[in-house]
């Protein structure tokens, strides 16, 4: 692997008494797609949410260890969480557009970060929608409500909204689980394109999806990172029996 963009060292997380992440040590390569797989409750979404401190929003969470973005420990108290989330964007399981126009959904983030010039915002909206492969479908109705879009379009809008603030890393938590196969294929194509410019980390229940879209795969089980390797190694000849048994459907 080349120099990592995100690295964790002995990362531990507790939800109250529950030890949800145990000694996670991993390095995420920039401009690659990394997938996290594992059975429900294994900690993959929890780990994903650590990368932009979304777990801060949950009560009684305790985190220990190191979590660095470009070499800086983002767990330290003086981290500017708003700035962090600009650099590390997130797309959720269910599309969650704001109840506003398509245009306003995209322009919202840049405005929060101080961009108010109309022309500049127009350019950002167009660029973000093009990057998210949605421009062609919505360019003539930018001022209509985002809630009128199909599920797949809404999810791509959410991706465009994330891209609008020019993040370095995009976290995706089950981005296709609420979508039909055609919309899923569009998102998967998009992930392939995004990795030219961004680092993508995706949590997915769908192992075939992990195999299709990712360069690296981490298999998690009961809060531990059991195996982390290139996706081809994980799916062709994993080293751990637990990984083998999970991906071949013998449990989970």
């Amino acid at each position: 692997m080349s120099e990592s963009i995100i690295s964790t060292k002995n990362l531990n997380l507790w939800y109250h008494e529950k030890h949800a992440l145990q000694d996670i040590t991993m390095e995420i390569e920039p401009k690659k797609t990394t997938a996290l797989i594992g059975p429900s409750g294994c900690g993959k979404s929890t780990l994903l949410r650590c990368f932009n401190r979304m777990n801060d929003l949950i009560n009684q969470v305790k985190i220990e260890g190191e979590l660095c973005l470009d070499g800086c420990n983002i767990l330290s108290d003086d981290t500017d969480v708003v700035a962090l989330r600009k650099r590390v964007g997130m797309v959720f399981q269910r599309p969650n557009p704001f109840p506003k126009s398509i245009y306003e959904n995209i322009a919202y983030g840049p405005r929060v970060h101080g961009i108010n010039d109309r022309k500049e915002l127009d350019a950002i909206v167009e660029k973000s929608l093009k990057h998210a492969a949605l421009w062609e479908e919505v360019c003539d109705r930018l001022h209509e409500s985002a809630l009128g879009l199909s599920g797949g379009q809404q999810q791509r809008l959410c991706i465009a909204r994330t891209l609008a603030v020019e993040p370095e890393v995009i976290l995706m938590d089950e981005p296709c689980s609420a979508l039909d196969p055609i919309a899923t294929a569009k998102i998967e194509n998009l992930i392939e394109m995004l990795k030219e410019d961004y680092t993508v980390i995706i949590v997915t229940h769908n192992m075939q999806q992990a195999a299709r879209v990712s360069d690296y795969t981490g298999f998690m089980y009961l809060g531990k990172l059991i195996e982390y390797d290139s996706t081809t190694t994980i799916f062709e000849h994993p080293k751990q029996d637990l990984t083998e048994n999970y991906i071949t459907g013998r449990f989970g």
């Binding site: 192992m207 000849h237 083998e244 071949t248």
Partner: peptide
């Protein structure tokens, strides 16, 4: 079935 790992092998 899109088999993987040992199943695929």
């Amino acid at each position: 079935n899109q088999p993987v790992a040992k199943d695929m092998r």
